[in-house]
Computed example of a mutant assay.
Amino acid sequence: MSLGDGHDDDGLYGGTGQTRTRLPDGGQGDGRPPVRSSSRSLITVVGVVVLLIGAIAFANRGGGDSPSGGGDAKKPDASATAPTGTKPVASGFAHDEQGAQSAAANYAVALGSAEMFDKNRRHAIVDAVYTPAVAADRQTSLDKVYAQETFLSSIGLNADGTAPSGSTFVSRIIPVGTKTMKFGGDSATVSIWYSSLFGLAGTNAKNPVSESWFTNTYELQWTGGDWKVTDFQQKDGPVPLGRDQRASTADDMAKAVQEYGGFTYAR
């Protein structure tokens, strides 16, 4: 599927002038951004920005569903959560404050997806999310991060970024809310508070799926008829008090990821 501006053949994102957020479609994968000072931050960033924010944060400062799975795991069925009517597209967010919020939430989901661990999908996402002036540098930085075998090994993935046989890689962002910090017509600063699921669901998984909470603040610019990211920052929390619930088994978690497709829109 194409994430480029004006392409909607995959229905990854969408902007109809409404404040709906489009999330990436099936077969995905920038779970957290890949690069953080600590292994946890690294994982968190990898998933979210890769972790939009691990990898991206690292890349920035340095310069669905899961895309992979093992065994007989089948690709999540996006139709389970697809909206009715016109499919969301990857561009066309409204040129106003609400449009900027929808773009920020939508881009966070894409950058935090497992698709970021696939080179071709990562390039498509980065080209769709960042301004042309920033995208090239981000591509280079992120490629270096995601190509590090030590990094991939630390989060339990194979050297090619896929999950070990019998495991399902999970990297999803769930937006809770957005806030406009600044709006100036053709520029905007938007913060998004979200929870992130990141890790491997499978027997003896090195990094079981866990939940984290973050707030990303995106600098957006109106260019080429759409909102694009020029930079961002990430911080931990706010983190709610966890309930006393027993964690599900690896099999139950993998089944849920496979059966519940990622949202194609959220707001």
Rank of each mutant, 00 (worst) to 15 (best):
S2A: 12
S2Y: 10
D5T: 11
G6V: 14
D9E: 07
D10W: 03
D10K: 02
L12H: 15
L12R: 13
Y13C: 07
G17I: 07
G17Q: 09
Q18G: 12
T21C: 12
T21W: 15
T21S: 14
L23I: 03
P24C: 01
D25F: 05
G31K: 07
S39I: 11
L42E: 04
I43M: 06
I43G: 05
T44G: 04
T44H: 04
V45I: 02
V45K: 04
V49M: 03
V50G: 11
G54C: 09
A55E: 13
A57K: 06
R61W: 01
R61F: 02
G63R: 03
G63H: 00
D65G: 00
G69Q: 10
D72T: 15
D72I: 12
K75D: 08
D77T: 01
A78S: 01
S79P: 00
T86C: 05
T86Q: 10
A90C: 10
S91H: 14
G92H: 05
G92T: 04
G92Y: 03
H95N: 04
D96E: 06
Q98S: 07
G99T: 06
G99D: 05
S102I: 08
A105L: 06
V109K: 09
V109R: 10
A110L: 04
A110C: 03
L111F: 01
S113D: 04
E115C: 02
F117H: 14
I125R: 12
I125L: 11
D127E: 03
A128Y: 02
T131S: 01
P132T: 09
A133R: 11
A133P: 05
A135H: 01
A135Q: 02
D137A: 08
Q139Y: 08
S141G: 04
D143I: 04
A147Q: 00
L152P: 06
N158Y: 10
D160A: 09
D160I: 09
A163N: 09
S165M: 08
S167I: 02
T168P: 02
F169M: 09
V170W: 00
V170D: 00
S171L: 11
I173Q: 11
T178I: 11
T178E: 15
K179C: 01
F183E: 06
G184T: 09
G185K: 08
S191N: 07
I192P: 03
W193G: 07
S195G: 15
L200P: 08
T203F: 00
T203A: 03
N204A: 07
K206R: 13
E211S: 15
S212K: 14
S212M: 12
S212G: 13
W213H: 15
T215A: 05
T217M: 08
E219V: 02
Q221E: 10
Q221G: 07
G224F: 13
G225T: 13
K228Y: 05
D231G: 01
D231E: 00
D236G: 10
G242H: 12
R243G: 10
T249N: 02
T249G: 05
D251P: 00
D252C: 00
D252L: 04
D252M: 03
A256M: 02
A256H: 01
A256Q: 02
Y260N: 12
Y260L: 13
G261P: 09
G261C: 09
F263T: 14
Y265F: 05
Y265V: 06
A266C: 10
A266K: 14
